[in-house]
Design a protein around this nucleic acid. Sequence first.
DNA 1: GCTTGTTAGTTACAAAATCAACTATTATCC
DNA 2: GGATAATAGTTGATTTTGTAACTAACAAGC
Lengths: 150, 150
Amino acid sequence: MTNDKFRKNDDFDLQNFLPFLLNQAAEESSLEFQRAYKDRYGLLRTEWRVLFHLGIFGEMTAKDIGERAKTHKTKISRAVRKLEQRRFLKRSRDEGDRRVEWLVLTPAGQTVYRELRGIAQQYDARLAGLFSADEAALLRRMLRRLAGMD
Amino acid sequence: MTNDKFRKNDDFDLQNFLPFLLNQAAEESSLEFQRAYKDRYGLLRTEWRVLFHLGIFGEMTAKDIGERAKTHKTKISRAVRKLEQRRFLKRSRDEGDRRVEWLVLTPAGQTVYRELRGIAQQYDARLAGLFSADEAALLRRMLRRLAGMD
DNA sequence: GCTTGTTAGTTACAAAATCAACTATTATCC
DNA sequence: GGATAATAGTTGATTTTGTAACTAACAAGC
């Protein structure tokens, strides 16, 4: 990719422009995991994220998930409906505040979650293995910083 | 974001899962630059990418751009048409191989490119400024590695 | 208690991305 | 040289996303 097919007539280095570079790295590094959740379970990106949040935290509301994952509420709403239709989660009204719905994985949802979690752990280890342990830790720290997650 | 509102009942660390983390960082770090090209010039993401490739490399074909930017040819095709309609680029048939079109920025396109390039440079410097020079260089190297750009 | 404002979540419509099929041209190989 | 395959690029149908407006429930001020 760093070939010389094209001679630059300019001094802007697109391949090192952070927003571009981050997008390329994010897309490339999502590909293999995407195959796991898409091809094997027919899940969309927002759907596995909702699934994982519930798998990890047990019980949450749509709003909580949206905040944690920085995802718009309409996306969450549609992902929740899909997961409900597939019987991967169930909803229940909060009796104290009847606007709120609590979401929780069904046993089927937990099974899918555990499988995907295993794949995710293996895959993350593979990616991190491209670097030394220190470098990988630094990378995560820098990414959290860029993502405003600190 | 690293608060304790939810007690984890599980050991998967989503906030450090590289594909997730990379996506979050990529989205967050694209936001401000996106405002520049979207609000000010009405460009879409693929459109600024095509514009930048032509600004940097002078003359390319749609296929070349697609390969460099890892972008599907239908996206490129539509972005090229939009940019042509706005008179930011012009096309010309290759006389040797008449399937091929050469794309080149018009003076208007070059003006937009130079403005956006300036904004991009400033913004990149701001992002890189979150880290030491060594760290930033390492970050770029690691991202290129993850993106398969090495 | 009644207006006004907020919040959780959904829905409707427009914009954009995806995937497959298509045209036109060139390359391969018998 | 003629059939077959490959390549550059486009188009159309379907899916997914984004934006705004919406419902229903709660909160605050007076």
